[in-house]
Write a protein that binds this DNA or RNA. Structure first.
Length: 201
DNA sequence: AGAATGATCCTCT
DNA sequence: GAGGATCATTCTC
């Protein structure tokens, strides 16, 4: 089930390509493993991306600042940030170092450690435990302490799946953003109950 | 220094 | 379907 761990080289590529290829891979942390079924791509020239402002700064010869500076660093590190003051959202930094980009993990399907997930989200129905970006971080125990950590050699990582897996990949606009809504950079597995219920506006 | 903003989720109606 | 929770970052004065 849990196969070879993805290395930094996997993430040091085009963000949209990484977002698509992450579907079907397995996110692992502390005895819990879950198959990725929904992702979104964010790039430096994308107004919806946190690094967009830093992209403008860089054109003036200044170095990136703030929380999104990490998006310019080496690929394959976790970018975890607090959203709406409530939820931790988990991303993976992409593109070669010096170029910004990230893939948001929006939904996963538990394959191992479901008892732990059940303990962390006791009141939620099984299908509602990991079908959203804020829910999966809670279910897997991902938080601010993972921000900036390398997935290649850390306790939190993504692995290839050894199980036969054939899902139809569907594309749509991204969820919950107000800018660049025309970019079809959300990828998810068709007819999977763990995909988030959100729909592009 | 103060205000606005958001890659969401849960609890009602 | 609507609204509140809650806070780091970013924008505006």
């Amino acid at each position: 089930m849990i196969g070879e761990r993805l290395t930094t080289a996997f993430f040091a590529r085009d963000t949209v390509t990484v977002a698509r290829e992450l579907l079907g891979c397995v996110l692992v942390h502390e005895g819990v493993a879950a198959r990725i079924v929904e992702t979104e791509a964010y790039t430096e020239d994308d107004p919806a991306c946190h690094a967009y402002g830093n992209g403008l700064r860089r054109l003036q010869g200044k170095s990136p600042t703030g929380r999104s500076a990490i998006l310019y660093g080496p690929p394959g590190v976790a970018y975890v940030y607090l959203n709406y003051g409530i939820h931790w959202l988990f991303n993976v930094v992409t593109e070669p170092e010096g170029q910004a980009g990230a893939v948001l993990i929006r939904a996963v399907e538990p394959v191992k450690g479901e008892a732990i997930i059940n303990k962390r989200r006791p009141q939620a129905r099984p299908a509602d435990r990991t079908n959203g970006p804020g829910k999966l971080t809670l279910a897997l125990g991902i938080n601010q302490s993972h921000n900036g950590r390398f997935l290649e050699d850390g306790g939190l990582y993504i692995a290839k799946s050894t199980a036969k897996w054939s899902g139809e990949v569907v594309t749509s606009a991204r969820i919950g953003i107000s800018k660049a809504q025309e970019r079809p950079w959300r990828f998810f597995v068709a007819n999977n109950q763990f995909v988030s219920p959100g729909r592009p506006s």
